[in-house]
């Protein structure tokens, strides 16, 4: 009979251990990146373009990557919202709960969410070759938009599903058409849209495999959609593999910038969620 108490205690100890491992992983990653990055960080890094001889350790920064990432992420976030808000609205207002189309669309989104970005990248690049395009800002934007649309739809849909039907009925009873309820619905799921946007931006800014072929890499800031664009994750990746110490240091600095952006996004998302769902934790 004692056995079950011993088992209970053992399992509980293992649970503490596992949770500690999770915490340790977070702390160790953040510590590694931030401490390495802090040592390599300087104002030049984030304010200057790569100068001559940059890749053999001469001066310059990775402003090109920062700006390139912002271009790609900003544009795809806007495009993503434009596509996904109508889809979510359609799924939740126009379609019935038991609709087959709704089921198929949700399944498709979940599946698209699971497809790795390298496949998006390869597929996108193959299309671009087919149309005779070269790696460019425009190509990167298209692929990243495709990549984040499922995230947008999934997380907004989740927020919209909890949407109280009575509000819709009230709007209908006032003579509103389905389309006219969009303002009510949007206001109601605004926190959901905000968290979805932060999530998508986080995914978009961190993605390397998708933009690797499609956006390419360059030392300058692109001035049109057809020019290639550098991105932060690729700046980390390419410079990390360099044998020269100074160049590696830049990789660490870029990694720190990327990590800080992600931290801000995820803390921001948490705050929004806590604010709007006080009693929910998960």
């Amino acid at each position: 009979m004692r056995a079950k108490f011993i088992e209970e205690k053992t399992v509980k100890a293992l649970m503490y251990l596992s949770t500690a491992i999770v915490a340790l992983a977070v702390v160790s990653i953040l510590w590694t990146i931030l401490s390495k990055g802090w040592g390599a960080m300087s104002w030049d890094m984030i304010s200057k373009l790569p100068g001559g001889g940059f890749y053999i350790g001469k001066e310059g920064g990775f402003l090109n990557a920062i700006v390139g990432s912002l271009y790609i992420v900003g544009t795809s976030a806007v495009l993503g919202l434009l596509v996904s808000i109508p889809v979510v609205f359609y799924l939740n207002v126009y379609l019935r709960k038991s609709s087959r189309l709704g089921y198929a669309a949700r399944l498709a989104c979940d599946v698209l969410f699971g497809i790795p970005s390298i496949v998006y990248g390869a597929f996108g690049f193959a299309l671009m070759i087919y149309f005779g395009m070269r790696a460019s800002l425009g190509g990167g934007i298209v692929v990243v938009t495709l990549l984040i649309i499922p995230i947008f739809i999934r997380s907004m849909d989740e927020a919209a599903r909890d949407f109280p039907r009575e509000i819709l009925d009230t709007a209908y009873s006032l003579g509103a058409t389905r389309l006219q309820t969009i303002r009510v619905v949007l206001r109601q799921i605004a926190p959901g849209i905000a968290t979805a946007t932060l999530l998508s931006i986080g995914r978009a800014i961190g993605d390397a495999a998708g933009v690797m072929f499609t956006a390419g890499y360059t030392d300058s800031i692109p001035t049109s959609l057809s020019q290639p664009a550098a991105t932060l994750p690729l700046a980390v990746f390419f410079q990390m593999t360099s044998p020269i110490k100074e160049v590696q240091n830049r990789a660490y600095a870029a990694a720190m910038v990327l990590t800080l952006i992600i931290l801000v996004l995820s803390i921001g998302g948490r705050l929004i969620m806590n604010r709007f769902s006080k009693n929910k934790l998960s």
């Binding site: 990653i29 953040l30 800014i205 961190g206 390397a208 994750p233 980390v236 990746f237 990327l258 803390i267």
Partner: peptide, 22 residues
């Protein structure tokens, strides 16, 4: 929970390349 869930958030949000550097 209020400590562990944000940690999981961060872990989920970190880009692949950061894990690579780590």
């Amino acid at each position: 929970k209020s400590y562990v869930f944000p940690m999981l958030d961060i872990l989920a949000g970190l880009p692949s390349v950061i894990y690579g550097v780590w």
